[in-house]
């Protein structure tokens, strides 16, 4: 068996979903790849000076500019005649959908041939679980603590895959560590596409979400089986759901296994169930439509 390009000895917490995602992302991308990584969990745990877990070149950027640095690397490689080298900009949800969002948007607009991957663990985990734009509704974090006056985060997640699409991106996908074959297939497909592409991978976090370290895959699976996290891809504007559970499990089964949702009352759970149901129905309506048209608006 070939050695991983994201090696053992990294300092991620036991049961880390994001570290698992990186193992398989690097495997799918292969040796002829250059990565940039925004400040965040995966940067901190994989590049503890003077060691690195990486078997391919990596540049640690600031929180803001993983996408911009990747764009620069891509253009420099093109000048050197190395057009075949994959360039991948990596950031957590904080680094991609909040702090690095401006750089992501600018890079997408300019159309560099770069794959942007957001490993979404649903908050700023490395600094102590502060909420991000990707934190789900109702989740208790250190900046949205549940208490007498608060039921956790009061906003819904930002839909960054669709925001990316609206930049005119030819390949957008969501993925989960609960289906690694699907994730790897999407990474390989994305890297075949000319121009910018965006993949958003759901990565459960035992520490920040509050579940046992052995349940990382199980929590990811429950998110997908309930429809709280939907796997889909959009190729040249064609939308398709990658996995449809024969019967979606109640979202309560997903929420109840995590401490961050422990405070939710029945009304809250119903609100979330309604939202998940509506989201699922709306996404199903998009199947077969040409979303390229939306880019022309």
């Amino acid at each position: 068996m070939e050695d991983d390009l994201f090696a053992s000895g990294h300092r991620a917490c036991a049961g880390c979903g994001s570290a698992l995602a990186l193992r398989h992302l690097t495997k799918a991308a292969g040796k002829n790849s250059v990565f940039t990584i925004a400040t965040g969990c995966m940067e901190v745990v994989s590049t503890q000076y003077p060691t690195t877990a990486w078997g391919v070149p990596l540049i640690h950027t600031t929180f803001e500019n993983a996408a911009s640095v990747a764009a620069g690397i891509k253009e420099a490689l093109n000048q050197q005649g190395k057009e075949d080298t994959n360039v991948i900009a990596l950031a957590g949800d904080g680094g991609m959908v909040d702090i690095g969002f401006r750089a992501l948007s600018g890079s997408l607009e300019r159309g560099h041939d770069v794959l942007y991957v957001c490993y979404d663990n649903g908050a700023y985990m490395n600094t102590g679980v502060q909420k991000s734009g990707a934190t789900p509704f109702g989740a208790s974090t250190t900046t949205t603590p549940a208490g007498k006056q608060s039921h956790g985060k009061s906003e819904w997640q930002k839909n960054v895959p669709f925001i990316a699409l609206m930049h005119g991106v030819n390949y957008v996908a969501t993925a989960s560590i609960a289906d690694l074959d699907d994730f790897k297939k999407k990474v390989k497909k994305a890297l075949e596409v000319e121009g910018p592409k965006y993949i958003h991978v759901h990565c459960p976090c035992p520490i920040g979400w509050g579940f046992d370290t052995s349940e990382t895959i199980d929590q990811g699976r429950k998110a997908v089986e309930s429809g709280a996290w939907v796997l889909y891809e959009i190729e040249d504007g064609n939308f398709s759901i990658s996995y449809k559970p024969s019967e979606r499990i109640p979202v309560k089964d997903y929420l109840s296994g995590q401490k961050r949702f422990k405070h939710l009352d029945e009304d809250d759970v119903e609100t979330i169930q309604d939202h998940v149901d509506r989201n699922w129905e709306e996404l199903k309506k998009l199947e077969g439509l040409d979303l390229d048209l939306l880019k022309l608006l």
Binding site: A7, S8, G9, Q48, Y49, P50, T51
Partner: peptide, 14 residues
């Protein structure tokens, strides 16, 4: 802060 030794994290016996 360049690290020139790929996969040197293997030195960390986690």
């Amino acid at each position: 802060g360049t690290i020139k030794d790929p996969k040197s994290s293997k030195k960390n016996k986690t």
